[in-house]
């Protein structure tokens, strides 16, 4: 139960946003980093797993995740050069916020995400009252999303949701950008399910990314036969992507475009050469 003083404090605590300056970008990048993992982990329960940005009346309020078993995880994200826990008994300290969140929401997990490695090391020894239930995590901050392609943990999670057999970095970047674009416009203090994220991604970029929840391509047998007869052309289906290669020419079509492509192929009936194939590609 929040005191009046606490209610006033929490009302003013967070005026930022997921795309509001440096702090907002950092929170956004961390959010998508977590989402990459959660949509794999909870792929059978996307509609029962949700997140909330800047949840009202919470002390650890940057992100809140709610899992299918209704347990919660609260995350505070700090892109600062100096930080301390303070006295957890003293109002307005970080320690106080964490203790109060635990009291208000138990059982729950609490995390403090820090961009600065040194600050992260210093914060690894929280006050005794917090020690057992707080995780302190280092997650670097870069202004440009592309830089995260060189952060091993970020790259690993991205690869897990990419549907390419061997994804290229530019393909992973498109995936990350798509998620950032979607999440940057979520409403604050509102629960959004992972299903909402997946649906938004699919609606927004129906032909631009190939990931595990994209619309799968099923190639017609006749199409396969026609394409196989083009000397030198190789092709494969990787979930939502049709990839083709002819010597030094290569390309890909994603689900929606592939449907149109297949229609044109079947209408044509037979392709004699790569030139015929290319004519169809350029008709799309």
């Amino acid at each position: 139960m929040l005191t009046k003083r606490e209610q006033e404090y929490l009302k003013n605590k967070h005026q930022g946003g997921l795309n509001n300056g440096k702090g907002g970008k950092y929170e956004l990048y961390y959010l998508v980093y977590e989402l990459f993992n959660l949509i794999v982990q909870y792929k059978e329960h996307l509609d029962k797993t949700s997140f909330c940005v800047q949840k009202k009346d919470t002390f650890v309020d940057d992100l809140c995740f709610i899992f299918p078993d209704r347990s919660q995880s609260f995350v505070q994200i700090k892109n600062v050069k100096n930080l301390n826990w303070g006295d957890p008994g003293e109002f307005r300290t970080l320690g106080y916020d964490f203790i109060r969140q635990k009291e208000e929401s138990a059982p729950c997990s609490l995390s403090l995400v820090l961009s600065d490695q040194t600050v992260c090391e210093n914060m690894q020894s929280p006050p005794d009252a917090l020690r057992e239930f707080v995780r302190v995590i280092h997650f670097p901050y870069f202004e440009e999303l592309d830089r995260y392609l060189n952060v091993e943990c970020f790259l690993t999670r991205l690869k897990c949701i990419s549907a390419y057999e061997v994804p290229k970095k530019d393909q992973l970047l498109s995936l990350a950008i798509t998620f950032c674009g979607i999440c940057s416009s979520v409403s604050f203090n509102k629960d959004h399910t992972l299903q909402y994220v997946v649906d938004s991604v699919n609606r927004s970029s129906s032909s631009k990314i190939n990931y595990i929840f994209g619309k799968k391509i099923e190639m017609n047998e006749e199409t396969e036969k026609i394409l196989s007869e083009i000397d030198g052309l190789t092709f494969s289906i990787q979930h939502s992507a049709f990839l083709w290669c002819y010597k030094w020419d290569k390309g890909e079509l994603l689900s929606d475009q592939f449907s149109k492509f297949e229609e044109l192929i079947l209408r044509k009936g037979k392709l004699k050469s790569f030139k015929d194939f290319e004519n169809i590609i350029t008709e799309l």
């Binding site: 798509t178 674009g181 631009k208 030094w248 390309g251 590609i281």
Partner: peptide
Amino acid sequence: FWNERQTIGEFTMAPIVRSYEED
């Protein structure tokens, strides 16, 4: 390279949809 520019929210990307690449 053939790129397709797309804007999602405040983010822009230009995925490669086709290429001709010698060795």
